[in-house]
């Protein structure tokens, strides 16, 4: 069984200070650590587990800047057989549909029984590229997948709905599944694996390599446009209890006592 995994590199922003670039169209990337998108790491692990059990290869595909070779190499260090990167200015600033269209052009020529993506990227947060990709490839799809059970030419998946309710579906393969975090325990790459992967080749694909009209991808191929970025307005916000940990927690303990919790 062969599996294609679409994954991307994202800056770590949960803990870092995020600064807007001066043109307000992007953020300052300097100083932000780069990593594999969290859900994509689970998608990759799921693909590795399945191909280890059922034989076959994993191919990882990304659309992104040079730095994203790093997540492709890390994927190969963990066991992916091939890596493809969609590269070139034609792909820049695509909306989720344009990204999906580009990825579809690369994926359609690969051999696969399954296409896995993460369910959501932490930077753009579209929660859309995987399912749009399925439509471009004309394949059945399901997202927020937290359970998979392989059958003969089909897979039973559990999708996680609000409140933790699981929706069980039977899907024919090939299909596209958006993987949600927690479905498995992602492995770490071994030092040996990393050393080997550093010499492996990554297949670079430009828009013309994929037979794509440049106007159909990237900003030109997008039907939505990012106008401007801003910091979210801060509402009333919390009353910040200042001081050293001892002082601030002393103030908090007082508040809690006034309110009758202590």
């Amino acid at each position: 069984m062969n599996i294609v995994v679409c994954l991307k590199q994202v800056p770590e922003t949960a803990e870092a200070e995020v600064k807007l670039a001066s043109d307000k169209k992007g953020i300052e990337m300097e100083g932000l650590p780069l990593q594999i998108n969290e859900a994509d790491n689970y998608a990759l692990e799921q693909a590795l587990l399945l191909t280890e059990e059922h034989d076959g290869d994993v191919t990882v595909v990304t659309l992104g800047p040079d730095s994203s070779d790093e997540v492709l190499r890390m994927s190969m260090a963990k066991g992916a057989a091939e890596a493809v990167r969609l590269a070139g200015p034609a792909f820049d600033r695509g909306d989720p549909v344009a990204i999906a269209r580009a990825l579809a052009a690369a994926v359609k020529d690969l051999e696969y029984d399954l296409v896995l993506t993460g369910c959501m990227s932490s930077d753009d947060g579209n929660t859309a590229v995987g399912m749009a990709l399925a439509e471009c490839l004309d394949l059945p799809h399901a997202t927020y997948v937290t359970q998979m059970e392989m059958g003969d030419g089909e897979v039973t998946v559990g999708r996680e709905l609000e409140g933790g309710l699981i929706e069980k579906l039977k899907m024919k393969m090939p299909c596209v599944l958006g993987i949600q975090t927690g479905i498995n325990e992602p492995r770490y790459a071994s030092i040996m694996g990393i050393a080997k992967a550093s010499k492996r080749e990554i297949a670079m694909k430009s828009a013309s390599d994929l037979g794509l009209d440049e106007g159909s991808v990237g900003e030109e191929g997008s039907r939505t446009k990012l106008e401007e970025l801003a910091y979210p307005p801060v509402g009333e916000g919390a009353e910040i209890l200042e001081g050293t940990p001892a002082e601030s927690s002393g103030k908090l303990a007082e508040v809690l006592r006034e309110k009758g919790f202590v």
Binding site: G125, N126, T127, A128, A132, A134, E135, T143, L161
Partner: peptide, 22 residues
Amino acid sequence: TAFGVDLAPGLAVTLELPFASD
């Protein structure tokens, strides 16, 4: 929602609708 994110992107692609999520 879990329903909407499963449905809307495909609809946007087939009908070629300008689409923004979340």
